[in-house]
Design a protein around this nucleic acid. Structure first.
Length: 289
DNA sequence: CCTGAATACTGCTTCTAGGA
DNA sequence: TCCTAGAAGCAGTATTCAGG
């Protein structure tokens, strides 16, 4: 792993993991500040709040760490991950800077862009510069690291201005429907949800809803609901140690324990009980998100 | 952009058994 | 007692196509 808890600017940058090989699913967690997540190779599902992103090489994702998030690996994935807080970020910025570099993080909250070849080279070059300076403590290297990070924030501002993000695309009618459905599932995953129910709530035809959802998200409504329930079950298994697997299964919307257990194992590769035991032994196996 | 029908298929529910 | 796993039947879902 090429990265660690970063010591240069503990008041701003909490961690910097460069081209981190990521082969395991990372458990749901939350933290202060913001996160920049960039995929170099491989692919993974990135869950944040009620959103799910399929990330591929060249995908850049910015997010608010306060939202519950985590990754589910599809293939072994190499990614760069930076966690930072903005309360003291002014200490790193040149006084002449006239751009609000935190605007994309505040205005968009969670957002993903698919970068093209030139932008990929550019952002990867910035990450390399940061890597070069990360362990040097002399003032020049510290300043170079700061400058590279500010350059990264400025690049994100540029990308936001010129490239449509998933967030912007969601303003379209179709994606707006899907966003509403995802939001509804996020609030009601513990209830008895059916396609009829969802279609009725959004006033659309159920066949159309199924098609729309699959087109936009890449998975069926059914799959999404199951993953959302398992996701919540994972959170409860980790953070509510006194709650039995049975209660958690029922809480998140499964009617039968056998079905909960089967779904959980299908999605995570572990039974709920195994998941809880392993989580106690080793939380966050690779560090970062 | 959206609806509706037909059909094949998926996976949920229920039941049961067995291990820890 | 709690949890996992397998089997069978059936309800619900995905897909496709035609049409407003």
């Amino acid at each position: 792993m090429r990265g660690d808890r970063f010591m240069h600017s503990p008041a701003v940058i909490k961690s910097f993991y460069y081209r981190n090989d990521c082969r395991t699913t990372h458990y749901l967690h939350e933290h202060d500040g913001f996160e920049i997540y960039y995929v170099h190779t491989g692919s993974c599902c990135y869950y944040i709040g009620a959103e799910l992103y399929d990330l591929e090489p060249g995908d850049l994702l910015i997010s608010n760490g306060k939202a519950m998030h985590g990754t589910m690996m599809r293939n072994p994935c190499t990614r760069t991950n930076i966690q930072f807080i903005d309360s003291n970020i002014h200490t790193m910025l040149p006084s002449s800077l006239s751009v609000d570099v935190m605007a994309p993080f505040r205005k968009l909250k969670n957002c993903r862009w698919k970068l093209g070849g030139d932008r990929m080279k550019e952002i990867e070059s910035i990450f390399s510069k940061m890597l070069d300076c990360r362990h040097r403590t002399n003032p020049v290297s510290v300043n170079r690291f700061h400058n590279a990070f500010v350059d990264l924030l400025l690049l994100i501002c540029e990308i936001r201005d010129e490239a449509p993000s998933d967030h912007a695309e969601l303003s379209k009618v179709k994606e707006s429907h899907v966003r509403r459905i995802i939001s509804y599932i996020g609030d009601h995953y513990g209830d008895d949800l059916t396609l009829d129910h969802l279609a009725g709530w959004i006033n659309l035809n159920k066949y159309y809803v199924a098609k729309l959802f699959k087109e936009t998200i890449g998975m069926t409504v059914f799959d999404y609901i199951r993953k959302r329930r398992v996701l919540e079950a994972k959170r409860l298994l980790l953070f509510d140690k006194h709650k039995s697997v049975t209660d958690i299964g029922l809480d998140v919307g499964f009617k039968q324990l056998s079905h909960f257990s089967a779904c959980f194992k299908q999605i995570t590769g572990l039974s709920p009980e195994q998941f809880r035991k392993r989580a106690v032994v080793g939380m966050f196996p690779n560090g970062g998100s």
